[in-house]
């Protein structure tokens, strides 16, 4: 066929247009490559009692800063510069301010006095914040994690008054404008609710370790303190450690190795 008549031209033209359009449609989702959202069963990390040991002899400010940064970016923690309105899940304080009960003029303080150490929610085994919450918005999971249910919090801040560690942050204003880049896979919070570290429970539930542990270059050890064969159990039975304000009976699960 060496002559293309008008009829044939139209046929070819319309077909090729169709082909181009169809091709562009297929570019969006190619049926062959299509993967629906179903998943393989999650391999959750489970424990009787999660705990964390922070090795003060090994950790340094660079590591701490990296942990803070990764945690806050992952969890969409806003960056409010005003100190009284800050939101923070993990941050650093002077050793002498963290362990400030009693007379700290001598012994350990002289060694660590001006060292910055990480502080976060202590995930208390006997948490005063859970005791006081009027709506069970904050509660203890069976594995010991003290969780905030942002859907339920009424923002009464009783938990902030009850926490002996200053670990809780209230959203005094809408946090979204203060998040540099929102992590789309994790929700933000809104003004009027209290938040805090939750041991990355969403990561544990998908089989991953807390983000600060991953970023800590082995200076933060995380594991099941209820399991006598776990690494953390062994370390804690070998080494000397401190816990914040132990005398208050809150049974904090953050151990500072010294």
């Amino acid at each position: 066929m060496d002559k293309i008549d008008r009829r044939l031209f139209l046929k070819i033209a319309s077909l090729s247009i169709l082909g181009v359009t169809a091709g562009s449609l297929l570019e969006v989702v190619n049926p062959k490559d299509f993967k629906d959202n179903s998943i393989e069963p999650l391999t959750k990390l489970k424990a009787k009692r999660w705990a964390m040991a922070i090795d003060l002899t090994a950790i340094n400010e660079a590591i701490i800063n990296n942990c803070i940064n990764k945690c806050h970016v992952t969890h969409n923690v806003p960056n409010l510069r005003d100190k009284q309105h800050e939101v923070k899940w993990i941050w650093q304080e002077k050793y002498s301010a963290v362990f400030n009960e009693g007379d700290n003029d001598f012994n350990l303080t002289t060694l660590y006095k001006n060292k910055n150490i990480p502080v976060l929610c202590n995930q208390c085994d006997n948490p005063p914040c859970v005791r006081v919450c009027p709506t069970k918005a904050t509660f203890s999971r069976d594995d010991g994690i003290v969780v905030m249910d942002m859907h339920r919090c009424i923002g009464c801040r009783f938990c902030m008054a009850a926490c002996p560690y200053g670990s809780r942050s209230f959203n005094w204003t809408d946090p979204r404008p203060y998040i540099d880049k929102i992590n789309e896979e994790y929700p933000t919070r809104e003004k009027g609710v209290v938040e805090k570290c939750d041991f990355c429970m969403e990561r544990l539930d998908r089989g991953e370790l807390p983000i600060c542990v991953e970023e800590s270059k082995n200076t933060i050890i995380f594991g099941d303190i209820g399991n006598k064969n776990s690494e953390i159990y062994n370390i804690l039975s070998r080494r000397t450690f401190l816990r914040r304000k132990e005398h208050l009976g809150t049974r904090p699960q953050i151990f500072y190795l010294i």
């Binding site: 998943i39 959750k44 594995d143 969780v147 249910d149 859907h151 429970m201 969403e202 539930d205 998908r206």
Partner: peptide, 8 residues
């Protein structure tokens, strides 16, 4: 998800 830690 939030209260029971059940994500599956």
């Amino acid at each position: 998800a939030v209260r029971d830690g059940e994500r599956l």
